[in-house]
Nucleic acid binder design. Structure first.
Lengths: 222, 222
DNA sequence: CCGTATCAAATTGTATGCAAAATACAATAA
DNA sequence: TTATTGTATTTTGCATACAATTTGATACGG
């Protein structure tokens, strides 16, 4: 997986590099707790330490990495306590995004989400997990987009990045999976009715359940 | 309390530098929109460009600065639209912090907040704005602390940093000031009764009102 | 055998150097 | 005068160099 994809433009590496490393972490190229020696990353990305370190500091400030003075960066682990901290915050933000989306979503956007939803349902009935998760993610992003609040979106994505890896690998149970789909069905209804409080409630519950799933997956992984 | 202004340790500057620049921005040393030439900051802080740039990237990722490629950093301005985006998010987070605090606060912490509250009331009756704001800030921090959720605290403080400057300079009206104090009174009651939903509601309303105050101040500043 | 001291290698933290881009400004032309 | 273009200066982006700290391997003493 380490084929220097390289060329990156000569100037303005920062955002690219940050994104590249973020992807590697989310996709599990580096496991939680594993060290990220600057030298290795420099060679992988074909850049020098200066822009690399700038990217590392930013990722650390997002909570994706932990940098110990004079000891370098590690991929931040995710404990059950972390999950218990993260999900209530994400729940509050998702609830808000639901309320705002109901107030602001257009018919076109709603139709897009509906299309995604039924595609996701199809993946569920076929038992295809990766595409299911992919579309699931897209639906939540669409709702965030419909909320028309970039600040909210950034804050949410920051937090969600820290558990996305866990969610990828989470081996969801059939029961929970069916429940999640049914929750999504409810979301669609609430969105169509522009019932903000209802959507907020569903999202909060949805995320609470997801929290339990992720924690179970974490426990199983050990 | 951190009156070692100059010396900064020789190694591990990053956090110190970041904090230092953050303070300068919040305290208004650099006005919104003004450039932050690396050279100037380097000389001010007595460090070289490498650690400085790392700090700038982090602050930019927090939304406090804007970095244009090859054009350097500027203090991010705050438009009415920004405020309209920020406050609902902060409101959601404060509401959550209120709920959690009610569930977890100790009697000691409650007593501390009560003491701060009445000190703040005193500053109000005396018309002393700066100390009032200072204590106000401390009370909200104490509530966040009582919520026992560092992730929440970090997310909140990130957003709050972007408007703290505006709140400092906001020339609050007598009416609004009295209203804010009364809202704080209610908060204390709800906290004492451990009434999470009520505290959440008050905080949301409190923040909504604050939002209007800040927007008015922004409008007045032009 | 285990713990500790010591020293070389590796790794991180900071400073400096060099190239590219932007900015400022003066000279010229319309 | 105003617009424009060419040039010098400044500023940023990245790479490299040097300093400080950690790491881990080895030797020594208990």
């Amino acid at each position: 997986m380490n084929d220097t994809i390289a060329p990156i433009e000569r100037q303005s590496l920062h955002d690219t590099v940050t994104e590249r490393i973020r992807d590697m972490i989310v996709e599990g190229t580096y496991q939680p707790g594993s060290r990220l020696p600057e030298r290795v990353l420099c060679e992988t990305l074909g850049i020098s330490r200066t822009p690399l370190r700038e990217a590392l500091k930013v990722l650390a400030s997002e909570g994706l990495l932990e940098i110990a003075p004079n000891r370098g960066a590690r991929v931040a682990g995710l404990t059950a306590e972390d999950v218990d901290e993260l999900f209530p915050v994400m729940g509050a933000l998702e609830a808000l995004s639901g309320e705002l989306a109901c107030a602001r979503i257009t018919e076109t956007e709603l139709a897009e989400i509906r299309a995604l939803h039924y595609q996701m349902v199809l993946h569920h009935t076929r038992g295809e997990r990766p595409p299911y998760f992919e579309i699931n993610q897209q639906i939540h992003e669409k709702i965030l987009e419909a909320a028309r609040n970039p600040t909210l979106a950034v804050a949410y994505n920051n937090l969600s990045g820290r558990i996305r890896r866990a969610r990828y690998t989470a081996n969801i149970s059939a029961t929970r999976w069916a429940q999640a789909v049914s929750e999504h069905e409810e979301m669609l209804e609430a969105l169509a009715e522009r019932d903000g409080p209802r959507l907020a409630g569903i999202l909060k519950r949805h995320l609470h359940n997801k929290c339990e799933t992720v924690k179970a997956a974490l426990a199983a992984a050990e």
